[in-house]
Structure formats: structure tokens, C-alpha cells
Design a protein around this nucleic acid. Structure first.
Length: 590
DNA sequence: GATTTCACGTA
DNA sequence: CGTACGTGAAATCC
């Protein structure tokens, strides 16, 4: 580090990077302000540049941009710039160290091996740090050099004790060009330290490959958040009308319609008995008065009483409608469906536990009925592709079980498994799932014992995860994600739950890593087709593409799966499959 | 007012 | 046939 530092904003970035000897894939740190001012740091030089120039350098050279978090991509997208790849310090931090906190001060201290008690508390206490951080940055920018001058020795981001200075982490990095550049340089330095911590970090190493795909998944998440899911408002309102009635014209009418829906259920109540259907306690009393005695009122428990009293059936129907009305009703459409026909929510690249992607505003748990309103824009179609039997296939790969890998050659791998176990297909499937996720009832029976004999390597892998988790030992997924299990002794009842959590985390987590590698491959290869991923659903991709490129895009999704399988598990002879269909509306698939 | 519980949608 | 998540309303805590 060190050396000549240029601060001229008119320095052309592409020639600059070329002079610095930066080649494709080399790590270049960047820091981006909300308005798109971008500092760029190579090993021995740095500039402040614009988003547009960064886009040009991305196309011409394509370094791997080291960023602190998804926030950089969000700022660049508002300037119309999408980067090809990155190294996301927050994403790689979560991979390396687990947990959920990943702000710069925390990630820096973690990779430097500093005691974490010494890290200043996050500016706002979590991932919601976004908006407040922007505000802080803007305040600093407005204050100009006053901030740097008044704080004297805080001109450097790293304090003498080795931690990042809290004023920098809180937004001081955006106060002046020199600070922005130092922040970019530090992003690069942190990324390099993370790469070293991953081990060799050489190409071909799965840990590094996972770090890269988890990083680029953050770019995808920023794009998903900004671009949204195509949804036809008229169709969506039609679906709602069929379930909860037309849009009420005012609050009195809304209350009346609600009361009307309630009365359909309550007219089956015994004479003189009433209840607030939204209160589980009152519903339980109501059911008791009708002769239905249940410990709680969950749907699966009420299901067996559906025919014993008309009240139960009506209540279950009411619950469905009430769910739509409260969570996915007209208010939901008004709030999250833009005038451009896009449904938007915030996307995160990895949740706290196994590293799945998450989305807010109901994008991940939209009722199936609403899928018919997810309609491609004029002249466009969707390629909907979902991974088939992804979890048992992942188990075969991560455990290295040759016998199970052989079964994955079949389109339906439960058929050879069933033949091997000498049971029917449904029994084989239950035995497999019970093995992967642990069972609470019985001990698996004959099929379970035969699983153990037929696939000992896979079963040993799962047993080992279970044992470690119960003992409170941390786990690592196949791709290297740390799953934290530490935290004191727990009751015997909770021990079994931890075992199930552990084996599930290793399967679900590895599947999530595989899925993200597939998704970012589709994102990259789909660019020439103008194919855009608009939804990720754990094992399913929805790709929005011009209609005349549909078949190419469908073939590309399949090609990307083969490519991902080769990179992700080159030695395991495991076959991964995906079903891809071209549709105009989401509900038309499968 | 903030946190927990119940319930239910998705995979 | 288990796990995960996000959401909203009621219940409960402080």
C-alpha cells in the first residue's frame, strides 16, 4: 500500500486502471456515496471518479470491485450502473464468521482477530443501518472539511488501537474525497484479508468461489430490490375481489364488509355465543362452546374437525380470506406495487441461519392465488426454472456418497433409492427426508435402517452434523459458511431440536450456496439476451426476457446449471436437474 | 411503547 | 415430515 495517490476527479478511470496494471478479476476497492461519487483504490494508487466511468471500467477491464456492502450497488443502480461482479465484505464476513452483524467496524475487527467486545456498537444496531447511514453521510458531506478539521487525528480510518474509528463507520467516510478514497482502500484491504482467511484463496478453491458468488448475489439482490417483480394491477385486484370482495370505498364500508365476513362464521355459533375471530383465545372458547375441544386453534389441528361441526369449516375458510385481507389485500398492493407494474421489496443475500436469500413485503410468501397476477410485461415472457430434488442431490454431493450420487443420475432419484431399499417410492422419500432433517416420532423403521446400510457415507455426514450441533459445536457448510451453534448447555428437549437444526442447516445451507452460484451465473450469461432475474425462491428462478429470446434463455438456464454443477462439485458425480418452462404468467408453470 | 405469542403463507 | 423466513394481530410485559 501507499505510493502515489491522485485525487483528480478528471482522471480517466480506464487508462488509470490500465496504467496501474489492473487486469480482469483483480481486486479494486471502491466506496460510493449516495449520489454516485466513487472512490477507486488499487494496490498503489487511487482516484475519485463517477458512476458512469466506473461502468465503463467494469465493461473494459472488469476488475472484481471490493465493496463494503450491498449499499454500494444500490447507490450505483440509482445512477443506472450495474456492476458485473464484486467482493462484498459484509457477505463474505457472514460466510466466514456466521451471525448477522456485518458492518465495516465488525467485519474489520473479525478478520483482524481483534476482540469483538472492543467494537463500537453499530450506528443503528443492524442491517436497517442503511437510511440512517445515508443521512449521516449527507450530514458529513454538508459539514465539509469542518468534520475532518474538528476531529484532528481522526484523519485516518484506523485508530491506534487497531479498530475502525466510530466516526468513520457512522458515515464520516463520505465527508471528503480523501476520506472516500481511504474508505475504498480499506475495503480492498479488508477483502484481501478475508481472502487470506478463506485459505489458499486460489482459483478453483470452493471457499473462494463461494465467497465470489455470495458477493455477486448481493449485486443481484440490489437489482431485484430496484427492478421489482412484474405484476398486473388489474388482474391482482380481480383476484382479491374474488376472495375478499371489491375494494371498499371508505373505512365504514371496510368495517361493514369485515363484519359481513365474520357473520358467515358466527352464524354457526351456539345461540348467544360470540367471539372476536381474530383472537385465538376467544376462538378456542367459541369452539369449546360448540363441542370442539382443542389445545390451540392452528389450521392443521382444526383440519380433523372440519366435518364435525360446520363452524370449523367456515372458520378455516375465513382464516384464508382474512390472511389475504390483512397481509396481501388492497393496502398491500397500494403500498408495494408501483405505478410501473412492479412489486418491490428489499432483498438480502443471506439470512441469519443457513444463508438463504430473503425478501420482504411478501415476495417470498405470496399466496399461490396471487401468482396468476404475476404477468410478464408486453413483448416479454418468463422462464420459470426450478431445481428438482435439490436437497437429496446436494446431500449426495456434500457427503461424497458414491451410491447416493449414482441414484442422482435418474430424473426421479427416489425411484432408484426405493429400489435399493426395497420399499415403495413414497416410503423411500419419507425415509430420505427423515434422515436429512431428523425425525421426532419413531426411529425411522425398516426403511431408515436400510438407508443406513445403503448410503452409509451420507448418513455418517448427517449424524456427524447432528452430534456436533447437539454438543454446541459450530458447523461449516460445504461452501464454507459458519453456522454458529455455540452458546451454553440447553435442556434435553432442546438438544434434539439443535441436532435437527444442525443437519438441516448443512443441507439447506449448501443448497442455498449452490442456488446462488446458479443464479449469478444466469445473471451474467443472460445479459446478451436482456434476460433479467426478477424472483429467487430458494430453488426457483423467474427470469423476465423478451419473448423472441425465450427459447435461448430457457436453454441458457439449463447450461448455467451444468456449469454451476461442474464448478461446485467437480469430483462428485452428482447430476443436478432443473425444469424450465416458458410462460406469460407465473401460475401457468407447473 | 416494545416485545412475545399465535397463526399462516412460501420453500 | 423436518427446518427456515416475513408478516400482522392480539396478548403480554414494562
Amino acid at each position: 500500500m501507499g505510493g502515489g495517490i491522485g485525487l483528480t476527479s478528471d482522471n480517466a478511470l480506464v487508462p488509470g486502471l490500465s496504467r496501474a496494471g489492473v487486469a480482469r478479476g483483480d481486486l479494486v476497492g471502491i466506496a460510493v456515496t449516495p449520489d454516485g461519487a466513487t472512490a477507486v483504490a488499487t494496490a498503489d494508487s487511487g482516484w475519485v471518479s463517477s458512476a458512469a466511468e466506473l461502468a465503463l471500467a467494469d465493461r473494459e477491464i472488469r476488475p472484481r470491485w471490493a465493496t463494503w456492502s450491498q449499499e454500494s450497488a444500490r447507490h450505483l443502480i440509482t445512477c443506472g450502473v450495474c456492476l458485473a461482479t464484486c467482493w462484498d465484505v459484509a457477505a463474505v464476513h457472514r460466510l466466514l464468521f456466521g451471525g448477522w452483524r456485518a458492518d465495516p467496524g465488525w467485519a474489520w475487527a473479525s478478520v483482524r482477530g481483534l476482540p469483538l467486545e472492543g467494537v463500537a456498537s453499530a450506528a443503528t444496531g443492524g442491517p436497517a443501518a442503511g437510511p440512517d447511514l445515508f443521512d449521516a453521510a449527507l450530514e458529513y458531506a454538508a459539514a465539509g472539511s469542518r468534520a475532518a478539521g474538528a476531529e484532528g487525528d481522526s484523519a485516518e480510518p484506523v485508530a491506534p488501537d487497531g479498530y475502525l474509528r466510530p466516526d468513520w463507520v457512522r458515515g464520516g467516510w463520505a465527508a471528503a474525497p480523501a476520506r472516500l478514497l481511504a474508505w475504498a482502500r480499506l475495503a480492498r484491504e479488508t477483502a484481501l484479508a478475508q481472502a487470506a482467511a478463506l485459505g489458499a484463496g486460489a482459483d478453483g478453491d470452493l471457499g473462494a468461489a463461494t465467497a465470489r458468488s455470495e458477493s455477486t448475489a448481493e449485486l443481484l439482490c440490489a437489482e431485484l430490490s430496484a427492478e421489482g417483480l412484474p405484476m398486473d394491477r388489474g388482474t391482482a385486484e380481480g383476484v382479491l375481489a374474488g376472495i375478499i370482495g371489491p375494494r371498499p370505498r371508505g373505512e365504514p364500508e371496510a368495517i361493514a364488509m369485515r363484519a359481513a365476513r365474520d357473520s358467515v362464521v358466527l352464524r354457526h355459533a351456539p345461540a348467544g355465543v360470540t367471539a372476536d375471530l381474530r383472537s385465538p383465545v376467544q376462538v378456542r372458547s367459541l369452539l369449546a362452546a360448540a363441542g370442539v375441544d382443542v389445545p390451540d386453534t392452528r389450521a392443521w389441528r382444526l383440519e380433523e374437525f372440519r366435518d364435525s361441526h360446520p363452524l370449523v369449516a367456515e372458520l378455516l375458510e375465513w382464516r384464508k380470506a382474512e390472511r389475504i385481507a390483512t397481509t396481501y389485500g388492497y393496502a398491500w398492493l397500494d403500498e408495494h406495487l408501483g405505478t410501473d407494474g412492479r412489486l418491490r421489496g428489499a432483498w438480502t443475500g443471506s439470512d441469519g441461519a443457513a444463508g438463504r436469500m430473503t425478501a420482504s413485503n411478501g415476495l417470498h410468501n405470496m399466496p399461490a392465488a396471487m401468482r396468476q397476477a404475476v404477468i410478464a410485461a408486453p413483448g416479454h415472457v418468463f422462464v420459470r426454472a426450478d431445481l428438482g430434488q435439490i436437497e437429496p442431490r446436494v446431500l449426495a454431493a456434500v457427503s461424497g456418497d458414491r451410491a447416493l450420487a449414482a441414484a442422482t443420475q435418474a430424473d426421479d432419484m427416489y425411484l432408484p433409492v426405493a429400489a435399493e431399499l426395497g420399499v415403495d417410492r413414497p416410503t423411500a422419500k419419507v425415509a430420505m427426508i427423515a434422515a436429512m432433517y431428523g425425525q421426532t416420532t419413531g426411529h425411522g423403521g425398516q426403511a431408515g435402517r436400510r438407508m443406513r446400510a445403503a448410503y452409509p457415507v451420507a448418513m455418517t455426514y448427517l449424524d456427524s452434523a447432528d452430534r456436533s450441533a447437539r454438543a454446541g459445536r459450530d458447523l461449516r457448510t460445504y461452501g464454507g459458511r459458519l453456522v454458529r451453534m455455540s452458546g451454553g448447555a440447553v435442556s434435553a428437549a432442546k438438544t434434539a431440536a439443535r441436532g435437527r437444526y444442525g443437519r438441516n442447516a448443512l443441507i439447506q445451507g449448501a443448497a442455498a450456496e449452490f442456488f446462488k452460484m446458479w443464479a449469478v451465473t444466469v445473471r451474467a450469461r443472460g445479459l446478451p439476451l436482456a434476460a433479467r432475474i426478477v424472483l429467487c425462491l430458494h430453488d426457483e428462478l423467474l427470469v423476465h426476457v423478451p419473448a423472441d429470446r425465450a427459447e435461448e434463455a430457457a436453454a441458457l438456464v439449463a447450461d448455467c446449471l451444468s456449469e454451476t454443477a461442474r464448478r461446485w462439485a467437480p469430483a462428485a458425480q452428482v447430476r443436478f436437474i432443473a425444469d424450465a418452462t416458458v410462460v406469460r404468467r407465473w401460475s401457468d408453470a407447473k
